[in-house]
Every structure is written in structure tokens, then in C-alpha cells.
């Protein structure tokens, strides 16, 4: 098992290192992630939202629907944690089970 996972990791490492050659250089202002919508956000966010912090403008205004989904995910995760553990067999029950053993 250990050998198989090591072999798998080595193959994946080769793939990742091969793919990393094609990625844009760090700090390149003309790379693909920095060109499409990002200049629009930087130029227009202050006059459209009156908020100097562009991260907040993108988060809450341009992508507000996305953030609504994220907030719902957080709320549902909290709810799930509560519900999973609220029906848990309590310590008392576990001790009874221990007596049976």
C-alpha cells in the first residue's frame, strides 16, 4: 500500500511539475488572471460603489449573489454540526454499553 501511494505521488509530482512550466510568471501584469475582469474592477469600483477597498466591493457588490451562497453554506454547516452531534449517543448510554461488554 505504501509503495503504491508513493508511486502515485511520484507520477502526480511529475505531472504537476510539468504543468507548472506553462503557468504565467509571478508578477506578470499581462497574464491571463490579471487581464479579463480585474482591471475593470480596479478602475470602476470606487466610482460605482464609493468603497476604496476593492476586495469588499468585489465580494459584496459585484459578486453579492455568490457571497449569499457562501453565507448559506456556513450557516448550513453550523446547523449540520449541531444536528449530527445532537442525536449522538450520550456518554451515559456509552457507559451502559460498556457494562454489557
Amino acid at each position: 500500500m505504501k509503495k503504491i501511494s508513493l508511486l502515485l505521488i511520484i507520477i502526480m509530482a511529475g505531472m504537476y511539475f510539468y504543468a507548472a512550466v506553462g503557468l504565467p510568471l509571478i508578477g506578470d501584469a499581462n497574464s491571463a488572471p490579471n487581464t479579463h475582469v480585474a482591471p475593470r474592477y480596479i478602475e470602476k469600483s470606487y466610482e460605482e460603489t464609493a468603497s476604496p477597498n476593492m476586495v469588499t466591493a468585489v465580494l459584496a457588490d459585484y459578486r453579492g449573489y455568490d457571497t449569499l451562497g457562501e453565507t448559506t453554506v456556513i450557516f448550513i454547516a453550523g446547523l449540520a454540526t449541531f444536528l449530527i452531534l445532537s442525536t449522538a449517543p450520550s456518554k451515559k448510554k456509552e457507559e451502559e454499553g460498556g457494562d454489557n461488554k
Binding site: E47, T49, A50, S51, T56, A60, D61
Partner: peptide, 10 residues
Amino acid sequence: DPAELHALGM
């Protein structure tokens, strides 16, 4: 400024 409405909503 109409843009300030966006700040309030945010």
C-alpha cells in the same frame, strides 16, 4: 452620490 447607496447596501 448614487454610489453611496452601494456602500450602504454593502
